[in-house]
């Protein structure tokens, strides 16, 4: 973390950092972050990635692949800053501004994590089932280690609670609730902004087997059903708005 802070401090001219930051973030697809070294990004790029992940998570009906690297990196920056702030005098003019920024960034991270936890609680069975399938296929897990643990414990507690309550049920206790679990509505409609040129997105309009094909221009905005674009969201080619 210290290294990347140093790097960020080197960018003395703000305007240059901003101009450079915008195009390069486009080159780093959200996918690349898992394979590339996160430390190589500047702090402002990490924030942009975090914002983008936050909005995607906010608007997508299902849970998206976790972004632990970004979250950890940003949290590291925030706590490093907070440690430094303790050494400043409380009436320092810069201190209040730094503090405001750390509050803002903390909100960003916590809001992102909360949305994921809400989804894990809501779609608990479905998410755990999909995680198992992914594990069998040796695919990258969508939940982080901590989230997976939370999901499993939540499921255990839920089942135990139902078992306790239903033990008073006369006769055989019903177990329908185990089969009829809540699934995210992948057909729900989302607004998106395309980050690149994409051709031939198939629209699932519920009418025929094969829906229309649409092309996205760079920067164009659409309202479209989520399942038509879910792979593009995960690849980072489109941004939900």
């Amino acid at each position: 973390m210290d290294d990347s802070m140093g790097e960020q401090f080197d960018d003395s001219d703000l305007n240059i950092t901003e101009e450079v930051a915008a195009p390069t973030t486009q080159d780093f697809g959200l996918d690349d972050i898992n394979t590339s070294d996160t430390e190589a990004l500047t702090a402002s790029q990490v924030i942009e990635l975090m914002e983008s992940a936050w909005l995607n998570e906010k608007f997508s009906p299902e849970i998206l692949p976790h972004k632990t690297e970004i979250v950890d990196c940003l949290l590291g920056q925030i706590s490093y800053m907070e440690e430094n702030l303790e050494n400043l005098e409380s009436n320092d003019f810069q201190k209040s501004l730094h503090q405001m920024e750390t509050y803002r960034l903390r909100y960003l991270v916590t809001s992102y994590l909360r949305i994921r936890l809400e989804k894990i609680e809501m779609f608990n069975y479905e998410i755990l089932k999909q995680e198992e399938v992914r594990e069998e296929k040796n695919e990258e897990s969508y939940l982080s280690a901590g989230e997976l643990q939370f999901a499993k414990e939540y499921k255990e507690n839920l089942e135990q609670h139902f078992d306790n309550v239903l033990s008073f049920w006369p006769g055989l206790p019903p177990d329908d609730w185990k089969k009829e679990y809540i699934k995210p509505n992948l057909h729900s409609f989302v607004f998106l902004k395309s980050k690149t040129e994409i051709e031939g997105v198939i629209i699932d309009d519920g009418n025929e087997e094969d829906g229309d094909l649409v092309d996205f221009k760079n920067g164009s905005q659409m309202i479209i059903s989520y399942n038509s674009v879910s792979n593009l969201v995960k690849k980072g080619d489109v941004q939900l708005i």
């Binding site: 401090f9 003395s12 402002s44 925030i78 810069q94 960034l105």
Partner: peptide, 15 residues
């Protein structure tokens, strides 16, 4: 209306 050095925010430098 005040003077201050560059502020090194996490999101980039200001000032």
């Amino acid at each position: 209306t005040i003077n201050s050095n560059v502020i090194h925010l996490i999101s980039g430098d200001v000032g």
